[in-house]
Design a protein around this nucleic acid. Sequence first.
DNA 1: AATATTCCCGTTTTT
DNA 2: CGGGAATATT
Length: 727
Amino acid sequence: MSTDGGQHHDDLLEGLNPPQRDAVVHTEGPLLILAGPGSGKTRVVTRRVAYLARTVTRPRHILAITFTNKAAKEMQDRIRALDVPPGATVCTFHALCAKLLRIYADRAGLARNFTIVDRDDRRKLVKQAIEACGLSTSNYSPAAADQVIGQAKNKMLTPDAFARLASDWRNQTYARIYAAYEQLLSSSNGLDFDDLLMRVAQLLARDETLRAELEDWFRYVLIDEYQDTNAAQYQIARLLTKTTRNLCATGDPDQSIYGWRGADIGNILSFERDYPGALVVRLEQNYRSTQRILTAADQLIAANQQRKKKNLWTENVQGPNVRIVEIEDADEEARFIAKDIVEHVRGGLPPSEIAVFYRVNSLSRTLEEAFLHEGLAYQIARGVEFYARKEIKDVLAYLRVLVNPADEVSLLRIINTPPRGIGDTTVDRLVDLARGSQRRVYDVITGADDLAALGRSGAKVREFGRLLTGFADLLQRPPTEAVAAIISRSGLRAHYQDETGLDEAASANLDELVSAARSFENDHPETTIVDWLEHASLVSDVDTVQSNGGPVTLMTLHAAKGLEFRLVYLIGLEEGLLPFQRNEGTPADEEEERRLCFVGMTRAKERLTLTRARYRMLRGATERTVRSPFLDELRGDGIEWVGDDGFASRRRTPTRSVSPEGRLPDDVAEWEIGTLVEHPTHGLGQVMAMHRGAKRTHVDVLFRDGSRRSWVLEFADLRRVDYHDVG
DNA sequence: AATATTCCCGTTTTT
DNA sequence: CGGGAATATT
């Protein structure tokens, strides 16, 4: 066994450039790998793991944290391919924290059988919390409160801490809601996503013995996508490496795209300050993209002010032009892409090497239709959607109640699913009964005391109670068996099979759920229902995409992080969409949006196409769009502008970028709700709504024929008419 | 209590 | 446009 590295490990250094080698052989002390897109980061990280395992430690002392489960699996496989014996912990932050909280539940003050609350259930609890505070959900929307609570948790603020910081009355109210939410959560023995991180961070800060124990377990820590870590993740990393200082962070500030989720780009920017003496390695040679793609992406990202300059370069071929396609509407955009892809596939390009990215999920719809029309197979990265489906959540709710009877949200979900004659009033009474006697609803339902207070429904509730207690024996069974048994014994199978008018795919989805359990069981022998439920809670959409031999992939820009394709389309380059703008009041974080666009562009290996539709239907109304300012930042020889009118390639110069076409009517000051207007094709109508934004004015018009359309007034061919004009 | 219908609201990205 | 909630109907 050699311990002096170097010459004995040539195989691990083979084919690496000098900075890559530096990173691989640096074993002790902090290391920051600033890795541009396509710079061979994963290669370096996996080789470094192998190097560590060969020279200074054993696999079980290595912890590698990735951003998605898919990335974890991939890294796991690649490490194994380097002949590293199994034993390293490779997973996401969330999976790690869930695991630690189960192992050290008692020291964290938790019950081991806690359930992980998903987004929908969390919403429900927030809503209950608002109501419990005696507030109206119309004044305090659950969505807004949810967001405030999430932000607070991401900053590791407890309800008390949040309350102390709340300066105004509204935030003080949010503090009350937050406290009430925490109360509900803990009484149902649940943890949300943010809790997983926050609890572990708190535990490590509080329990020095445990911290030291874990530090000795994880002697070498690697964190990928460090630019997207939040305060809790930062703390965990810091505490786990407090004395060893063996933290290797990899990332790219230009690819920080999760600020909205509490990620702090400052974590990576101040790494050297936080970990003095850190070795900083910069990987700037790109092995992925053509020169033209790289140049275009670099041009775009150069417009960001808050960033460290990077010198991205490649020895790859120049490649074809980056195309910018401006087209009439979303349907044509989708058709254009579908046809273009079909041609490439006919030309021999494997579909799995092709992807279409968009800013928001809703844009996938028109693409799907066009793909269907062309007979083009596709996959959408949306595994979450599967586990969020009604019928799937029903089954999971039964399982959750089985492992955690305190889970009231799940219990109330299944109490009348499938319908068994237990209506709202009965449920309300049951809940009152439970509150009155300080018991859990589950115990009231399954208890021995008489349910006479419930009248005729009492018998039905009792029967439901017997059903639940009858499931108890499943707790020790493997997941597949438990899932199958629940599906049939609960009546869900019959319900989703027989009922006409219900989603026909529902029953098939139940089968798919059983298969999913089976495949999880194959990968993880000796697994339990608790493990599988946890897995079901933590899978993400990207985790499910097939990479080799699969069909064309459709996904959001966020989901595209870390992936690469030979042919990439990025659609919807329009003001308000990319960069996305939530509403007129709050300006988008334009730099983060630009980074998002950068991430999308740099996924492309050979050919990149950016598209923009002049009209797009969003939330039910077709609107004239404005070209994304990002497109105007792309200029030069490698860019080809394509119109949809047959004759292509007008070269744009940046002169037009300041003020795009369109102007407001001169008499705009007189426009108001109710104003009569005329449109050349739609005829007479009346203004139903107007939004005067900082940049654009939007109008909603109801026409005489009953149709309703909205426009950006600057571009609408609308003319104000007076009553006497109409007669 | 269950189902059918209407209406109203929000409206990004995800572990 | 689409989901969820309030409302109407059986």
